[in-house]
Design a protein around this nucleic acid. Structure first.
Lengths: 169, 169
DNA sequence: TTATATTGATTGTGATTCTAAATCATCTTG
DNA sequence: CAAGATGATTTAGAATCACAATCAATATAA
């Protein structure tokens, strides 16, 4: 595998060194590992993501929740169905607005989330294990910063906001 | 583990700080930006990825090529169809093995790839624009290192090799 | 108040996409 | 030459997704 691509030069070096590939690959690896992890706590990766949002930034409506996790509202319905069937969240009617449902984690949901989160952190810590603490911090901070950046070159009047919803699968 | 998952600061930003979310989000952002970029050169993102592999690490068989880019062989067929229809690659019968097809880039494919690659590098450079050169180098090197790491905790006898094929869409 | 429009949740639909098996031709091995 | 393996392609089925359509409830305006 250790192919030495001819004369690296300033740009193009190893086969895939572009950010997109690196991100895609790392994301995918984490996705499968974490999918397996959270399944043992009765949820899917989407469920986990939504549950985190429910616990940490409770929203008064599913619409707001959907926006918070960057998922389509119609998809959120299914995710919540799963979570509710698993007994991890409850859809409570909002007394102030009978259309809305207040989503709240059940005690069991809280417990499951804590456990799942611990597992996920373990996975991610293990991935980062070989990195020096400084490199680790630098990575985290760089990534955190980049997610805030608009990516598309805003040529005309195009909104840089479009296209951010990641599929976690 | 100096990890502060607790919701600090102004709500909304500290929500998802796990690696998986960061990677997924960054990958998605780059995916849409780069998809648009390569389309102007007559290819899709998968096509671009395959074309890079074809040029930089020519494989004697589609199977090997599929493995190189971590894509299913049946999917590679469609990707190559696109590239061939666009006149960017050629399926040449292998004189030594009439089953196999040698995939090679056409002159036009070479040109298109160079142009597309320049665009992609521009996009990625712009994304990294705000990072200090040192942080940039650190990020690149950290990511490069991480992709080599096995991710799944190898509990039983499970292979860490499984589950690496990223979907670039 | 009534009428209209907006919001929130859900359901349905069409299109897209991936995986896995089946197919066909060719090669290799016994 | 027969039997199995390999390479490319096709097909079929499932899964997923975005988008429109629907239904209920609220807000707004006349």
């Amino acid at each position: 595998m250790a192919h030495a691509p001819t004369s690296e030069g300033p740009h193009g070096s190893g086969l895939h060194q572009d950010l997109h590939w690196l991100f895609a690959r790392l994301k995918q690896g984490l996705a499968t590992a974490e999918t397996a992890a959270v399944r043992e706590h009765g949820m899917t990766l989407w469920g986990y993501t939504v549950l985190v949002a429910v616990v940490e930034a409770p929203a008064r409506t599913q619409l707001a929740l959907a926006h918070a996790v960057s998922v389509d509202k119609s998809k959120l319905v299914l995710i919540l169905d799963e979570l509710e069937d698993a007994g991890l969240v409850r859809r409570r009617p909002d007394p102030a607005d009978r259309r809305a449902r207040i989503i709240e984690a059940t005690p069991e949901g809280d417990r499951a989330l804590k456990a799942a989160r611990a597992d996920i952190e373990a996975i991610e810590n293990q991935l980062l294990a070989d990195l020096a603490p400084s490199a680790r911090a630098a990575l985290q901070s760089a990534l955190q910063h980049l997610v805030g950046e608009p990516i598309a070159k805003v040529e005309d009047g195009r909104s840089p906001e479009t296209a951010c919803a990641p599929d976690l699968a």
